[in-house]
Nucleic acid binder design. Structure first.
Lengths: 125, 125
DNA sequence: CAGTATCCTGTGAGATACTG
DNA sequence: CAGTATCTCACAGGATACTG
């Protein structure tokens, strides 16, 4: 892989455009992925349940987000041949392993969001 | 990082649109912020030095990124009244405290990016 | 129920050129 | 050196309506 020169303290060059971090941030940094992952963190959910829990998301965008997460192996989609149709979404083991890092960011955010907002105000935002 | 279940029982509602996590992900999830933070993780750097180390970034975008990070209190900008002008950028303590969480994501990425790419290929991306 | 199908818009970001 | 100033464009993502 791309172990050019260790930046920060790992074996990857964080300044490289194809650094894995970038890939992952593009996946979870978008507007909705993290909501979906959070919603599925403890429950298997159906399409409409997801839509209800994640307020404000449109079906189109929810579909896109779910397909992207599925493509990357983070979410599993199971279709039951019933009438009416039933589709269940759950995190894969890979998806579940992301909960830890996300949690680290979330905890930082909860601890420091006040400081960020203060700085923002001080700057006149 | 206490939680294996980071989602809905941490005191904050991760599914809320104004969840702190979202704010932070919007900041570090954009195309360049993490590069800037990484570049400044061990060194104080000047504008041109940043531009050189972060290949491909245009001055306009670098300026925008630095201003945003400064606004949020993550980066400090120090101007020296000299000729030719000299401006130094460094992480604030708040900015440095972000290195931990970022590192957690980076480590996950390094460990699992292969699986993600395999899943992506398997899906025909 | 679990999505598609269209249409539309804001904006992140690139290219390029110029300046105190 | 350390930025501004414009222009441009792709595309994520929203609104709305429809369907197997």
């Amino acid at each position: 892989m791309t172990a050019n020169q260790p930046a920060m303290d790992g074996g990857f060059d964080v300044l490289s455009l194809d650094c894995p971090s970038r890939l992952i941030l593009q996946r979870i940094g978008d507007r909705w992925s993290i909501f979906v992952i959070a919603a599925l963190s403890k429950e298997v959910l159906r399409f409409t349940q997801l839509k209800q829990r994640i307020g404000g998301i449109t079906p189109k965008v929810l579909t896109e987000t779910l397909r992207a997460l599925e493509t990357d192996g983070l979410v599993a989609r199971e279709v039951f041949a019933e009438m009416p149709p039933r589709v269940e979404y759950r995190l894969t083991p890979l998806g579940r392993s992301l909960l830890g890092p996300i949690s680290a960011v979330r905890e930082w955010a909860e601890t420091h969001v006040g400081e960020v907002l203060q700085a923002r105000e001080r700057a006149g935002a």
